[in-house]
C-alpha cells in the first residue's frame, strides 16, 4: 500500500499527544510499517504543535512534508490555515470549528483571520464541526480531540472496533466510555 500521510495540528496543551498515541496505536493494528513524529518541549506551552503519522508498506522518513498530507486534522481554525499547504490536491481537512486566540491577537498586535474554512474549501474537501461543543454535551470538554479523530477515521483504513480497542488501551480507564462515545459521535458526523 502506498504510504498514507496524516497530520494533527493544534495548540500546545490541547491534547495532540494523546490523539497521536491513539493514531499510532491504530496504525499498528494492520501490520503496516508506521512512523510518527511529535513535538515535545517548549511549543507544548501554548504554541503551535504538529504531529505526523505515516503508515504503509515501507516508511522511510518520519515527517509529512508540504503537499503530501492525505488527511489534515486541525484542532483549531488558525492552525488549519497555518498547515493547509501540507495537504495534497485531493487531501481532506478535518477541522474543529473553534477559535483560540494566539498571544499576538490577545494583545492586539495581530488580527485573527476571517473566513479560514471557506478559503480552504475552495481547494479541498473540508469536514468541520464544533467538536468542543459536542464533547461538552457528552460530558467532558477535553474529549473533543477524540470526536475529531472519529471524523478523521472515515478517511483512514481501520475498522471502528479496532479504534475502540485502541481507545480502551490508550486513555485513562475512567474515561474509556466517554471517549468511545466521543469517537462514535465524530464518526457519525463525517458520514
Amino acid at each position: 500500500m502506498e504510504t498514507k500521510n496524516i497530520m494533527i495540528v493544534g495548540v500546545g496543551g490541547q491534547g495532540t499527544l494523546i490523539a497521536s498515541r491513539i493514531l499510532g496505536g491504530i496504525a499498528t493494528t494492520a501490520g503496516y510499517d508506521v512512523k510518527l513524529s511529535e513535538v515535545h518541549g517548549m511549543a507544548q506551552r501554548g504554541g503551535s504543535v504538529v504531529t505526523f503519522v505515516r503508515y504503509g508498506d515501507y516508511v522511510a522518513e518520519p515527517i509529512v512534508e508540504p503537499g503530501q498530507a492525505d488527511v489534515l486534522i486541525a484542532f483549531e481554525r488558525l492552525e488549519a490555515k497555518r498547515y493547509a499547504h501540507y495537504l495534497k490536491k485531493d487531501g481532506v481537512l478535518i477541522v474543529n470549528d473553534t477559535r483560540i486566540d494566539p498571544m499576538p491577537v490577545i494583545i492586539g498586535a495581530a488580527e485573527y483571520p476571517e473566513g479560514i474554512i471557506e478559503e480552504i474549501e475552495k481547494e479541498h474537501t473540508v469536514y468541520k464541526a464544533d467538536a468542543t461543543a459536542i464533547a461538552i454535551e457528552l460530558g467532558n470538554a477535553r474529549c473533543f480531540n477524540v470526536v475529531i479523530l472519529g471524523m478523521a477515521a472515515r478517511h483512514m483504513d481501520y475498522a471502528v472496533e479496532d479504534w475502540h480497542k485502541v481507545i480502551e488501551k490508550t486513555v485513562k480507564p475512567a474515561t474509556i466510555e466517554i471517549n468511545k462515545k466521543a469517537f462514535d459521535a465524530g464518526y457519525a458526523l463525517a458520514e
Binding site: V11, G12, M42, A43, Q44, R45, G46, G47, S48, P66, L78, E79, K81, R82, A84, H85, P102, M103, P104, V105, A109, A110, E111, Y112, P113
Partner: peptide, 12 residues
C-alpha cells in the same frame, strides 16, 4: 505556507 497569519508562540 500562508503568510500574514498571526504566529502562535509558546506562552506562560
Amino acid at each position: 505556507a500562508a503568510t500574514d497569519i498571526p504566529n502562535r508562540p509558546p506562552i506562560l
